[in-house]
Design a protein around this nucleic acid. Structure first.
Length: 800
RNA sequence: GCCGGUGUGUCGGAAUCGGCAGACGAGACAGACUCAAAAUCUGUUGUCCGCGAGGGCGUGUGGGUUCAAGUCCCACCACCGGCACCA
């Protein structure tokens, strides 16, 4: 058959669209399958081949599921709020709305050209009123439920761009945009109380099927640690100084305390502290450091002793000094630690520098040389002396602390509350009104969406204010509660907002009464399979799991976890082996590939190029192999004969159907395609095949190269669309040949192979192996020590 | 430092309930077709010794278990990803 991709690809794309072949059906009796891919950010550069790979796994699975009779929901949308569009607008003066619309048109045409089987009736755009209305709705629900709060915090601020930056945008202490030095600035920050869900985000992982490394990253991100809170007492004031520790059994080894420079106890005791000037000087130095500098490892420990305050160890009664040092963070635990220099490397370094006592409480190391962090017998520890097991000594100490009322078990998380505002224009307005009399008042639900006003100037204001702050008509409003003059919040939500719930909107994208109809949610949720990048398995996925759990708590969704299964693709690197980027100039544009080879070749190649989960470089010549594969496959129609093929070929078909079916489920597309290649190589050797076999081949090919598959299907007289034809099945009994080639080893080295019937009994196999001339020659004159035969695999004869 | 992963020809990669290492594809070389090139087709292609039959070596390194190890065990090395002064 002549394979002219230029004519057949548009032809079948049109037919699919006319037939509504990929439309998901609501209220169907069929079994559902919801496949999800991470919706793209519609950047001006358009898609690169990495996007194609990212979408291709669920594309193949979706197409296979449809052929298996499932009602499939495979949607696409656009995560369109964000900084690049806004920066582009600042630079060019073109409004983000126009830029976004233009980019979405571009992405849509690219996606359609590839022939993805998305349901185009369900496209969502996070910047559209009908969508962000519900983003705001969820925010207000969280506000109502006490999950939203405001607090002063130090933020990364770029004095040149006049903009507050996230930690990601200020790596290395430099502004990501203009590369000037970042300073720390105190700002009011909106927070979502994600830490309240920390434990459930952790335990929820037991219910879902994520790749192990994905689960592990989430576990690390949440960072749960179990330990104890212990109250030390300040001798001079009687105040409690509370610390968190995971090793409360080392309490007898505490020789000093360290608190964070920001710890409130300093302000509370300014007049009592005799060296307050020295402390203030140190604190000022710390305040100037960025989070990045402060967390640099292996740097010299610094700090200042607080004169005038002394702590009392609640267990030993010993009086110890208190220091401030920036190696203790206000943001973790209580911002204060008990220091056990003998058994903690950081405390050891600090004690050495400041000449503080080091008391050994765990035997096993040499504390004159370094801190000993291993296990061992407890010493110098009162009632704990003689304990050798960490678990027991901690348990004993916890009991004691509780009895004495000076401490108790506690849990800490590395995960922090989610800073949820940006001083930016191109985002969802936070629907809150500040009233002088009523405080923070939510915008009434019926007034949603709170529209983002159309402005002409997107430059951030002085001091890093949102551009919205300059729009009087937006800012000035009446308090929804008391009706007096009030001002709107001018910050917007971060980029993560829309993507935290978009998968729900696909289920009912045009609903104006609710974020989605409960009946539809019940049918479609949860997402059966979600694929995306490894870079999103912590932030995006944790954020969206948090929102989902909240929505579950208020009865808005029917299940507690949004994604039943999660996998990730590896990057496509540039032809030079480096990460694709505009600045390197190594980006491959899918349109260029389609122009030359067609969409089917592109689709096949991105899946054939390597292990789906690993990164692999693009190779301009390797893609030819996929082109040849499809050409050769199309030409097979010339070999169709009434009694074509051979019994062995029939077996190979059954094997291949099984292999391709199984491999798709494990995302092993490269070996699935390789199996089809091997099959057509075999057909060419045999020289003919049957029409039935060719139709099987077309259906197997359909998820990968659907346009060619349709064309073949039509040529062969198949009924309806190949995309909706029944997925081929295999007969397990027909996947085995009648004979197998078995390797014969002498002392573990292969010396010959013999053709044996399948499941040949051991004795017979050994006898037949020995009958082989070469084997007989090898055994001659030697003693056979042992004979091993593994049916259908190997015969090994050990001789001496 | 901690956690996770990977290491196989010239390249992308196959093969892990231990059983013929290098499937499939690319590249390279040789040949056919062609005035020629491209495309296509055929053959060769881990490495070393040998005219050949054949044999030695070979899956990051070193050791071990086994009739048999890319696969299992021990010790290391290198690279990639994540977290990181987390108390």
């Amino acid at each position: 058959m002549k394979y002219d991709f230029r004519s057949i690809e548009p032809k079948w794309q049109k037919k699919w669209e006319e037939a509504g072949a990929f439309r998901a059906v609501d209220n169907s009796d069929k079994k559902k399958f919801y496949a999800l891919v991470e919706f793209p950010y519609p950047s001006g550069a358009g898609m690169h081949v990495g996007h194609i790979k990212a979408f291709s796994s669920m594309e193949v699975v979706s197409r296979k599921r449809r052929m298996q009779g499932y009602n499939v929901l495979f949607p696409i949308g656009f995560d369109a709020y964000g900084l690049p569009t806004e920066n582009y607008a600042i630079k060019t003066g073109i409004h983000p709305r126009e830029v976004t619309d233009r980019n979405i048109v571009k992405f849509t045409s690219q996606l359609k050209r590839v022939g993805f089987s998305f349901d185009w009736d369900r496209v969502v755009d996070t910047t559209e009123e009908g969508f962000y209305r519900w983003t705001q709705w969820i925010f207000l629900k969280m506000f109502e439920n006490g999950l939203v709060f405001r607090d002063q915090a130090l933020v990364n601020y770029c004095p040149s761009c006049k903009v507050v930056l996230s930690n990601e945008d200020s790596q290395g202490g430099k502004c990501d945009i203009c590369h000037s030095d970042i300073v720390q600035k105190s700002k009011t920050v909106w927070y979502l109380r994600i830490t309240e869900y920390a434990d459930r985000l952790l335990s929820g992982l037991d219910e879902v099927d994520y790749l192990p490394n994905i689960k592990q990253q989430q576990i690390n991100w949440i960072g749960k640690s179990t330990g104890a809170f212990v109250n030390f007492t300040v001798k001079e004031t009687g105040e409690k100084l509370r610390i968190y520790t995971t090793r409360c059994d080392t309490l007898f080894g505490v020789t000093f305390m360290v608190i964070a420079p920001e710890h409130p106890i300093i302000e509370a005791n300014r007049d009592r502290i005799t060296n307050i000037k020295a402390l203030d000087a140190y604190r000022e130095v710390c305040a100037k450091k960025t989070e990045f500098e402060r967390t640099q490892l292996n740097k010299e420990k610094t700090g200042v002793r607080i004169e005038g305050l002394t702590a009392v160890n609640p267990v030993s009664g010993k009086e110890i000094p208190i220091y401030i040092s920036d190696y203790v963070m206000m943001g973790y635990g209580t911002g204060a630690i008990m220091a056990v220099p003998a058994h903690d490397e950081r405390d050891y370094a600090f004690a050495k520098k400041f000449g503080i006592d080091i008391i050994e409480v765990i035997k096993g190391g040499d504390i004159s040389q370094e801190a000993y962090t291993g296990d061992g017998e407890m010493v110098n520890s009162g009632f704990l002396n003689g304990y050798t097991n960490k678990k027991d000594s901690i348990a004993r100490m916890l009991t004691y602390l509780k009895e004495q009322g000076v401490g108790e078990m506690g849990v800490q998380y590395k995960m922090k509350d989610w800073a949820f505002n940006r001083q930016r224009y191109w985002g969802e307005p936070i629907p809150i009104v500040h009233c002088r009399y009523c405080g923070m008042v939510p915008v009434p639900y019926e007034e949603l969406p709170l529209r983002l006003p159309r402005v002409e100037n997107f430059e951030p204001g002085e001091g890093g204010e949102s551009p919205l702050a300059k729009i009087d008509s937006f800012v000035n409003c009446k308090c929804p509660k008391c009706g007096r003059d009030a001002k709107r919040e001018t910050d917007t939500m971060p980029q993560w907002a829309g993507s935290s719930w978009y998968y729900l909107r696909y289920i009912d994208p045009h609903n104006s009464k609710a974020l989605a109809d409960p009946e539809k949610l019940k049918y479609w949720m949860p997402v059966d399979w979600y694929n995306g990048g490894m870079e999103h398995v912590t932030r995006h996925m944790i954020y969206s799991r948090f929102w989902h759990k909240f929505l579950y708590d208020i009865g808005a969704v029917p299940c507690s976890e949004p994604y039943a299964k999660r996998t990730a693709q590896g990057l496509i690197l540039g032809p030079d082996g480096e990460k694709m980027s505009k600045s390197r100039g190594n980006v491959v544009d899918p349109n260029d590939v389609i122009d030359v080879y067609g969409a089917d070749v592109l689709r096949t190649y991105v899946l054939f190029m390597g292990d789906y989960a690993s990164a692999a470089p693009w190779n301009d010549s390797s893609i030819k192999g996929c082109k040849r594969f499809l050409d050769r496959l199309a030409d097979l129609t010339d070999l169709i004969r009434e009694n074509g093929g051979s019994p062995k070929l029939e077996t190979s078909f059954h094997k291949t159907v099984k292999k391709v079916s199984d491999d798709i489920e494990e995302l092993k597309f490269n070996t699935a395609i390789a199996a089809m290649m091997a099959l057509i190589n075999e057909i060419y050797e045999v020289g003919s095949l049957t029409r039935e076999q060719m139709m099987t081949l077309a259906r197997l090919l359909s998820p990968f190269a659907p346009h060619l598959a349709e064309e073949l299907w039509e040529t062969l007289g198949g009924e309806g669309l190949c995309a909706l034809a029944e997925w081929p099945t295999w007969d397990e009994t027909k996947t085995v040949d009648s004979t197998v080639e078995v390797a014969v080893q002498i002392n573990g080295k292969v010396r010959a192979t013999v053709e044996l019937p399948v499941d040949c009994p051991k004795e017979k196999a050994i006898a037949l192996a020995k009958a082989d001339a070469r084997i007989a020659g090898q055994i001659e004159g030697k003693t056979v020590v042992k004979e091993i035969s593994v049916p259908n695999k190997i015969v090994n004869i050990v001789v001496r």
